[in-house]
Simulated scan of single mutants.
Amino acid sequence: MTRQETVIKITKITRIVGEMKSQLDLDDEIEFEALDSSWMNIGKWAKEICLYMEQAPSPLLANLITNNEFTVPVVNYVQSHKQEIDSAYVKVIDCYANNMQALLSLCERQEEEVKGEYKDLIEPLANEQVATLLQRAIRAGLLDEHYQPMPQTKPLQLKVIAYAVSTICKLPSTYILFEKQWKREYGKRFSTWRVPRYNTGLYETTKALYPEVDFTEFEPTHQTETFYTPQSEEDIAVLYQYLVKYRYIAPDTGLKTFVGIFNKKTFSKPVEWIKTQRQLSFFVYQAFYKFNKKDLWVKGECCFSINGHTPHKACFVSGYSWIKRAGWLDR
């Protein structure tokens, strides 16, 4: 059998089994009588393809073969409906299943032989450049010697590694290949994880493994949100004076900085709050809730800091809730 004939038979098998799968999707059954009669040869074709691949291994043909994703559901259907299906059809599908399994195993063995020392990496990650870059993560204890994640490795760390390696190697897809490499394409996808605003230690240490990579596009930009208030500038200045006088905000806070939390165009930096988180929650709610209901706590995150750190949205919620439960709203 020639290479061209092999390609034709692979294509025919893919088309026929795909048609069976389409029938399953539409009607939950396969009408074998409605298929072209040539379908009865799929078992024989699979065996002939296997014989050809033994004599002339080809990664290109192997990709065509393994891209057929319809075999398993079709075989499972026939196995579970043997009593209802013509025995001749069952025999053909059984023959096809056995020969296709042998063919897939052959393709897998040949792929392992081609990859050699990079056999633990999927194509097209199986090369020296990718392996060398992943060695950094292995030395850091994030991956094992087979390039698989260690139990303690977090999804965000995997995302950083994938982004860095994909960027350096100019891979066509940033995460898809690594989702497959780490067998996560049907589980919790690490590509959906976001860079935290807080507790960034794991993120920073993983990023440091690849200093040559610019992570600017990797990191989300957080839009600045400021408070709206109908009060005049004079009223805002009076509020500022009282907050400084009674030591609620840092004494070196400038009026310009404070006024900035009411205007995106003039916002320069958050105001440093020097009382407790609960007191800040109370202040933000009492002062700004009426005109900033929708994004009140988000604006609080943007406009204030405590000990130089951004207060967490959840801390605003829990802080105010605690005061409310304790009956301290009027104190």
Rank of each mutant, 00 (worst) to 15 (best):
L329M: 11
P155H: 07
V75C: 08
R247Y: 08
S191D: 10
E19S: 14
D252T: 11
R197T: 11
W39F: 05
T11C: 00
E29N: 11
K119N: 10
D36H: 12
Y203V: 11
K207R: 13
C169K: 05
Q279M: 12
A164E: 06
A102Q: 10
T224L: 14
Q152N: 13
F283S: 05
N292A: 00
G260T: 10
L103H: 03
H222V: 15
N263M: 01
Y210Q: 04
F32G: 09
Q223M: 13
F215N: 00
G18V: 07
I274Q: 10
E5P: 07
K21N: 15
H81L: 03
P149D: 02
Y228S: 06
V271K: 06
F282P: 04
I8F: 11
I10E: 02
F70V: 01
D252E: 12
E84T: 14
F262L: 12
V7R: 04
K180D: 13
F70D: 15
A88V: 07
H309P: 03
I274D: 04
M40P: 00
S268K: 12
E84D: 13
W297L: 01
K324I: 03
R184M: 15
T226I: 04
S38Q: 06
L255A: 03
N76W: 06
V165C: 01
L60H: 09
E29C: 13
V92S: 09
P57I: 02
K12F: 09
R194W: 08
K47W: 01
E19I: 11
I8D: 11
A46R: 02
V160P: 08
G300K: 05
N63C: 07
Y210L: 07
E31F: 12
F190I: 07
E111Q: 13
E69L: 12
N199L: 11
A97L: 07
H146W: 03
D144Y: 01
L104Y: 10
K324P: 05
A140W: 01
D25S: 15
P151L: 05
L202P: 09
I16R: 04
Q223H: 12
V213Y: 08
I306R: 00
F262M: 10
N99E: 05
L142S: 05
G116L: 04
T11G: 10
L142A: 06
N68K: 01
K275G: 06
E69F: 12
E179R: 05
M53V: 11
W322N: 12
N68S: 00
E272T: 03
K188E: 10
H146P: 01
V271M: 06
A56T: 14
Y203S: 08
Q223V: 14
K180P: 00
Y198M: 10
